[in-house]
Design a binder for these strands. Structure first.
Lengths: 223, 223
DNA sequence: CCCCATTTTAAACACTTGTAATAAACAAAT
DNA sequence: ATTTGTTTATTACAAGTGTTTAAAATGGGG
């Protein structure tokens, strides 16, 4: 009956000394589950595969997290935190400089995040977008990503622009980046000539930025 | 032992008279499976739910199609054929007229196809893109959709344009359309202000076309 | 040393899955 | 009317699922 959630206060302040004794299994479980969920999706991923990858027993998930669903929710939170640490909001994105630079910075951050081969979040996020689960709300559906884009677009369109036009432009840019989040796995089949080099993110950033600058400029003139 | 595939020659020429006697169950199965696969994905969809929806028995799938996978492959082919009938390649898309008109026509066709609420293909296609199955190749991964776009972009960029630039522009346009194919289900959560009216496709077409014309024009000047 | 809370194992459970085996119903032709 | 080939219906099965139960091990304070 001693729920795992209750001893967080009794042991949390002193569980680091033994080299992450308590956190060890939990961490391994979190990592293994992240990979399984990202690779196969929530339903297709099995608790047996997860515990095998984490080198622990079948009951661990229920003991440490309370079930498969709770583990999944924790995985989402964990990966969001991880990704936010790896792609911090840089200071120059909100800067007052040229709107073109702000747009380029926002696009670059988005592209790097979505193409980061070491992050499992884009895949998990894409799966959730295609098939939203109750845990989706906890990810704060990409609002932070689009906010930087929104202010840059606002700067380019001018303060008196139609907000709906601005929203459409933001979506036009965001969708070009998000595309790779969705088709990553099928990219060789649908876009065989796409090279996944180290410089791919920068080339992509340049193209999307220029394309967007042209599109925004034309729509601004059209009124 | 009498395989269903063998009597296609012996009964096919005379199975229509009794009001689609033979085709009836098969058709119902195909329709039910299309909806289940589109709603839940291949693995999550169960043969029991499918046969229940088709108002037939559990063995029908194995008898008429030979298994769940074969049924799925048939569903993909069926839906592709259905969609191609509903969205025929119009003659003015390849016309020699103004490249702007060609682009607008290609975008319009793409948007209408992807936003068609009565077609299950976009969902099935999105599922396959996110998680390609062996049956994915049989869909001819959207090549026909992008070819119209490609020729329009080519016409706008000029005959001496860098083919890689043209490919990037095509992808920029296609991704803006495909975005809705992926996020349709989560649209209320990620884009609450998007109205799914009857005129939504046309507004979308206009915006994407103008945005793309501006982007292409800028990239053409950039060289 | 021993008790006790915590954690780890291991086994079992109840349920669902796709498919195979088998039986029943049906329709048409001899 | 009976036989034959085809379709439908029912049942059974083996494998896999998440979860529960209960036993074993662990590791510090009394």
């Amino acid at each position: 009956m001693t729920d795992r959630l209750m001893d967080a206060g009794s042991q949390a302040p002193a569980d680091l000394p033994p080299g992450s004794d308590e956190q060890d299994v939990r961490r391994r479980l979190l990592d293994a589950a992240s990979e399984e969920f990202a690779a196969r999706g929530f339903e297709a991923a099995t608790v047996r595969d997860i515990v095998a990858r984490a080198r622990t027993n079948l009951n661990s998930i229920n003991y440490h997290f309370g079930g498969k669903q709770a583990l999944y929710a924790e995985v989402l939170r964990h990966q969001v935190a991880l990704s936010e640490a790896r792609h911090p909001q840089r200071s120059d994105e909100r800067a007052e400089g040229a709107p073109e630079a702000a747009l380029r910075a926002a696009v670059r951050r988005l592209v790097r995040f979505l193409l980061d081969p070491d992050s499992l979040l884009p895949r998990l996020y894409a799966l959730e977008l295609l098939n939203p689960s109750p845990a989706f709300a906890s990810m704060g559906p990409g609002a932070s990503q689009q906010s930087a884009l929104a202010s840059a677009v606002q700067g380019l369109l001018g303060p008196h622009a139609d907000p709906r036009l601005a929203a459409r432009c933001v979506r036009s840019i965001y969708s070009q980046c998000a595309y790779f989040m969705f088709v990553r796995k099928a990219l060789p089949m649908v876009d065989p000539q796409f090279r996944h080099d180290a410089q791919a993110p920068d080339e992509l950033t340049d193209h999307i930025t220029e394309f967007a600058l042209g599109g925004i400029e034309r729509l601004r003139r059209d009124r």
